[in-house]
Deep mutational scan, measured.
Amino acid sequence: MTEYKLVVVGAGGVGKSALTIQLIQNHFVDEYDPTIEDSYRKQVVIDGETCLLDILDTAGQEEYSAMRDQYMRTGEGFLCVFAINNTKSFEDIHHYREQIKRVKDSEDVPMVLVGNKCDLPSRTVDTKQAQDLARSYGIPFIETSAKTRQGVDDAFYTLVREIRKHKEKMSKDGKKKKKKSKTKCVIM
Protein backbone atom coordinates (compact mmCIF):
# COMPACT_ATOMS: atom_id res chain seq x y z
CA MET A 1 0.00 0.00 0.00
CA THR A 2 1.38 3.38 -1.01
CA GLU A 3 1.77 5.99 1.72
CA TYR A 4 1.43 9.69 0.95
CA LYS A 5 2.85 12.38 3.24
CA LEU A 6 0.53 15.37 3.00
CA VAL A 7 1.12 18.66 4.78
CA VAL A 8 -1.63 21.23 5.43
CA VAL A 9 -0.27 24.79 5.54
CA GLY A 10 -1.81 28.24 5.84
CA ALA A 11 -2.32 31.16 8.19
CA GLY A 12 -3.80 30.75 11.67
CA GLY A 13 -7.57 30.36 11.82
CA VAL A 14 -8.20 29.39 8.17
CA GLY A 15 -9.55 25.94 9.10
CA LYS A 16 -6.61 23.61 8.49
CA SER A 17 -7.45 21.44 11.51
CA ALA A 18 -11.19 21.55 10.78
CA LEU A 19 -10.56 20.30 7.21
CA THR A 20 -8.25 17.53 8.41
CA ILE A 21 -10.58 16.37 11.20
CA GLN A 22 -13.54 16.46 8.81
CA LEU A 23 -11.63 14.14 6.44
CA ILE A 24 -10.39 11.79 9.18
CA GLN A 25 -13.31 11.70 11.63
CA ASN A 26 -16.26 13.01 9.60
CA HIS A 27 -17.16 15.76 12.01
CA PHE A 28 -16.81 19.53 12.23
CA VAL A 29 -14.87 21.16 15.04
CA ASP A 30 -16.14 24.70 15.44
CA GLU A 31 -14.12 25.88 18.45
CA TYR A 32 -10.75 27.40 17.58
CA ASP A 33 -7.82 25.80 19.35
CA PRO A 34 -4.53 26.86 17.73
CA THR A 35 -2.51 23.85 16.58
CA ILE A 36 1.18 23.40 17.23
CA GLU A 37 1.43 20.24 15.15
CA ASP A 38 -0.86 17.22 14.81
CA SER A 39 -0.46 14.10 12.72
CA TYR A 40 -3.29 11.94 11.37
CA ARG A 41 -3.41 8.74 9.33
CA LYS A 42 -6.25 7.39 7.24
CA GLN A 43 -6.56 4.55 4.75
CA VAL A 44 -8.58 5.50 1.67
CA VAL A 45 -9.18 4.27 -1.86
CA ILE A 46 -8.36 6.83 -4.56
CA ASP A 47 -8.93 5.86 -8.20
CA GLY A 48 -9.05 2.18 -7.25
CA GLU A 49 -5.76 2.27 -5.32
CA THR A 50 -5.79 1.70 -1.56
CA CYS A 51 -3.43 4.16 0.05
CA LEU A 52 -2.48 5.49 3.44
CA LEU A 53 -2.65 9.23 3.95
CA ASP A 54 -0.20 10.53 6.53
CA ILE A 55 -1.43 14.07 7.15
CA LEU A 56 0.48 16.70 9.08
CA ASP A 57 -1.71 19.53 10.34
CA THR A 58 0.59 22.46 11.01
CA ALA A 59 0.68 25.64 13.08
CA GLY A 60 -0.43 28.77 11.26
CA GLN A 61 0.71 31.10 14.02
CA GLU A 62 3.86 33.03 13.22
CA GLU A 63 5.54 32.06 16.52
CA TYR A 64 5.83 28.48 15.22
CA SER A 65 7.30 29.42 11.85
CA ALA A 66 10.72 27.99 12.80
CA MET A 67 9.18 24.50 12.71
CA ARG A 68 8.05 24.90 9.08
CA ASP A 69 11.30 23.98 7.34
CA GLN A 70 11.36 20.62 9.11
CA TYR A 71 7.87 19.48 8.09
CA MET A 72 8.26 20.94 4.61
CA ARG A 73 11.33 18.74 4.09
CA THR A 74 9.36 15.55 4.83
CA GLY A 75 6.12 16.41 3.00
CA GLU A 76 5.45 15.04 -0.49
CA GLY A 77 2.52 17.35 -1.21
CA PHE A 78 0.99 20.46 0.30
CA LEU A 79 -2.55 21.77 0.76
CA CYS A 80 -2.13 25.56 0.81
CA VAL A 81 -5.21 26.76 2.68
CA PHE A 82 -6.68 30.24 2.96
CA ALA A 83 -10.09 31.39 4.22
CA ILE A 84 -12.35 33.00 1.61
CA ASN A 85 -13.34 35.60 4.23
CA ASN A 86 -9.74 36.57 5.07
CA THR A 87 -7.79 38.44 2.38
CA LYS A 88 -4.56 38.42 4.43
CA SER A 89 -4.62 34.60 4.57
CA PHE A 90 -4.94 34.57 0.76
CA GLU A 91 -1.99 36.96 0.39
CA ASP A 92 0.06 34.76 2.77
CA ILE A 93 -0.21 31.80 0.36
CA HIS A 94 2.60 33.27 -1.75
CA HIS A 95 4.97 33.16 1.24
CA TYR A 96 4.08 29.55 2.08
CA ARG A 97 4.59 28.50 -1.53
CA GLU A 98 7.96 30.26 -1.78
CA GLN A 99 9.12 28.68 1.48
CA ILE A 100 8.06 25.20 0.29
CA LYS A 101 9.92 25.66 -3.01
CA ARG A 102 13.03 26.90 -1.17
CA VAL A 103 13.05 24.05 1.37
CA LYS A 104 12.34 21.40 -1.29
CA ASP A 105 14.86 23.10 -3.62
CA SER A 106 12.42 22.66 -6.50
CA GLU A 107 10.04 24.71 -8.62
CA ASP A 108 7.89 21.62 -9.12
CA VAL A 109 6.30 20.55 -5.82
CA PRO A 110 2.81 18.96 -5.70
CA MET A 111 0.38 21.52 -4.23
CA VAL A 112 -3.32 22.30 -4.19
CA LEU A 113 -4.70 25.76 -3.42
CA VAL A 114 -7.68 25.47 -1.06
CA GLY A 115 -10.20 28.24 -0.36
CA ASN A 116 -11.90 27.17 2.86
CA LYS A 117 -15.07 28.44 4.58
CA CYS A 118 -17.02 28.71 1.30
CA ASP A 119 -20.23 28.23 3.34
CA LEU A 120 -19.81 31.75 4.78
CA PRO A 121 -21.61 34.68 3.11
CA SER A 122 -18.88 37.20 4.02
CA ARG A 123 -16.49 36.46 1.14
CA THR A 124 -13.55 38.86 0.64
CA VAL A 125 -11.54 36.68 -1.77
CA ASP A 126 -13.25 36.25 -5.12
CA THR A 127 -13.28 32.75 -6.65
CA LYS A 128 -11.77 34.16 -9.85
CA GLN A 129 -8.86 35.70 -7.90
CA ALA A 130 -8.06 32.30 -6.40
CA GLN A 131 -8.46 30.51 -9.75
CA ASP A 132 -6.11 33.02 -11.37
CA LEU A 133 -3.51 32.54 -8.64
CA ALA A 134 -3.71 28.74 -8.91
CA ARG A 135 -3.42 28.96 -12.70
CA SER A 136 -0.33 31.18 -12.41
CA TYR A 137 1.21 28.57 -10.06
CA GLY A 138 0.13 25.69 -12.32
CA ILE A 139 -1.76 23.97 -9.49
CA PRO A 140 -5.41 22.96 -8.91
CA PHE A 141 -7.79 25.16 -6.89
CA ILE A 142 -10.64 23.76 -4.80
CA GLU A 143 -13.15 25.57 -2.62
CA THR A 144 -14.07 23.76 0.57
CA SER A 145 -16.21 24.02 3.65
CA ALA A 146 -15.03 22.02 6.64
CA LYS A 147 -18.46 22.75 8.15
CA THR A 148 -20.60 21.27 5.35
CA ARG A 149 -17.84 18.89 4.11
CA GLN A 150 -18.07 20.39 0.60
CA GLY A 151 -14.88 19.71 -1.35
CA VAL A 152 -13.01 18.16 1.60
CA ASP A 153 -12.37 14.73 0.06
CA ASP A 154 -11.76 16.37 -3.31
CA ALA A 155 -9.00 18.62 -1.90
CA PHE A 156 -7.03 15.80 -0.28
CA TYR A 157 -7.62 13.32 -3.12
CA THR A 158 -6.60 15.89 -5.74
CA LEU A 159 -3.35 16.39 -3.84
CA VAL A 160 -2.69 12.63 -3.92
CA ARG A 161 -3.28 12.68 -7.68
CA GLU A 162 -0.83 15.58 -8.02
CA ILE A 163 1.79 13.60 -6.07
CA ARG A 164 1.21 10.57 -8.32
CA LYS A 165 1.65 12.72 -11.45
CA HIS A 166 4.82 14.20 -9.99
CA LYS A 167 6.28 10.77 -9.14
CA GLU A 168 5.42 9.49 -12.61
CA LYS A 169 7.09 12.49 -14.22
CA MET A 170 10.18 12.10 -12.03
CA SER A 171 10.53 8.41 -12.86
CA LYS A 172 10.20 9.16 -16.60
CA ASP A 173 12.85 11.86 -16.28
CA GLY A 174 15.04 9.41 -14.37
CA LYS A 175 14.68 6.77 -17.11
CA LYS A 176 15.61 9.32 -19.78
CA LYS A 177 18.75 10.24 -17.85
CA LYS A 178 19.67 6.58 -17.37
CA LYS A 179 19.25 5.89 -21.10
CA LYS A 180 21.51 8.81 -21.94
CA SER A 181 24.19 7.67 -19.52
CA LYS A 182 24.40 4.23 -21.18
CA THR A 183 25.98 5.73 -24.30
CA LYS A 184 29.62 4.72 -24.36
CA CYS A 185 32.59 6.34 -25.93
CA VAL A 186 35.21 4.09 -27.53
CA ILE A 187 38.68 5.48 -28.12
CA MET A 188 40.86 3.55 -30.60
Rank of each mutant, 00 (worst) to 15 (best):
D108M: 13
Y71Q: 03
A18Y: 01
E91D: 07
D47Q: 08
Q61F: 03
K172F: 11
S39R: 12
G12K: 05
A66M: 14
D132R: 05
A146G: 06
K101Q: 04
V103F: 13
D38P: 05
S65E: 06
V14M: 08
V45G: 13
R41H: 04
I84P: 15
Y157I: 08
Q70K: 13
I24Q: 06
E98Q: 04
L133W: 13
D105L: 09
E168R: 09
I84A: 14
D119Q: 06
T74S: 09
Q70V: 14
T2R: 13
L159H: 02
G151N: 15
K176Y: 14
K42G: 02
D47F: 14
F90G: 05
C80F: 13
D154H: 06
V14G: 12
E107P: 06
S39H: 05
R97C: 15
V125H: 12
K178C: 05
K177Q: 14
G15K: 14
D57C: 00
S39D: 02
L6H: 02
I139V: 06
V109L: 08
T124M: 08
I21D: 01
D54R: 14
K172A: 09
K178H: 13
C80K: 02
I187V: 09
G115V: 12
D69W: 08
E37C: 15
T127D: 10
L113R: 03
Q131G: 12
E62M: 03
F78S: 02
A11Y: 13
G10L: 01
A59S: 13
G13A: 12
S89G: 10
V114F: 03
T2K: 11
V7E: 03
D38L: 00
D54V: 08
T20G: 01
Y71V: 05
A134D: 14
E62S: 04
K88Q: 14
K169R: 06
A18Q: 15
K104V: 11
V114I: 09
L79I: 12
F90I: 09
D132C: 04
D132V: 07
I24T: 02
I84Y: 12
M67A: 02
Y71I: 03
K178T: 11
L56P: 00
Y157F: 08
L133I: 08
V112I: 05
Q99V: 09
C51T: 11
C80L: 10
C80H: 12
Q129T: 11
E98P: 03
I100A: 03
V8T: 15
K5M: 04
H27N: 14
D30G: 05
Q22L: 02
E107L: 09
R97T: 13
F141Y: 12
G48R: 11
L53M: 09
D92A: 13
G13Y: 12
P121L: 07
K177T: 13
H27E: 13
P34I: 01
V45N: 13
A11I: 12
K117F: 15
R68D: 01
L19G: 14
V45R: 13
T127H: 06
G10E: 02
K184L: 04
E62R: 03
R73L: 06
K16W: 01
L120C: 12
S65Y: 09
T58I: 00
C118I: 10
V9E: 00
P121A: 11
K88R: 12
Q70A: 15
P121T: 11
R135H: 04
S122F: 07
D38T: 00
T20A: 04
D154R: 07
I100C: 07
Q150H: 11
P34Y: 01
V44N: 15
I55W: 01
K180N: 03
L19W: 03
S136R: 07
R41A: 05
I93T: 10
G151W: 12
Y4C: 11
V44S: 10
I46C: 10
D54H: 13
P110M: 02
G77H: 01
R73F: 10
T74M: 05
Y4D: 10
D57A: 00
Y32A: 01
G15F: 15
L56A: 03
G75V: 03
S106H: 08
G12S: 13
K42V: 08
L52D: 13
F90W: 11
Q43R: 12
F82K: 03
G77L: 10
A59T: 03
E31K: 01
G75D: 02
L133C: 09
V9Y: 03
N86M: 03
K128W: 05
V29W: 13
N116T: 13
R41T: 04
F78L: 02
D57S: 00
N116Q: 11
G60H: 00
V7S: 10
G12H: 12
G77F: 11
K165M: 05
E76K: 03
A59Y: 00
N26M: 07
V8D: 04
L79F: 03
D57K: 00
P34G: 00
D47M: 13
R161G: 06
D154T: 06
R73D: 05
T58F: 00
Q129W: 12
L120A: 11
K177W: 05
R123F: 06
F28G: 00
L159W: 03
S181L: 09
K128V: 06
A18R: 00
V45W: 05
M170I: 10
H95E: 04
Y4F: 12
V14R: 12
V152M: 04
E49F: 10
K5G: 11
T127E: 07
M170Y: 10
I84L: 13
Y96C: 12
T183I: 09
G13I: 06
E37Y: 15
I46S: 12
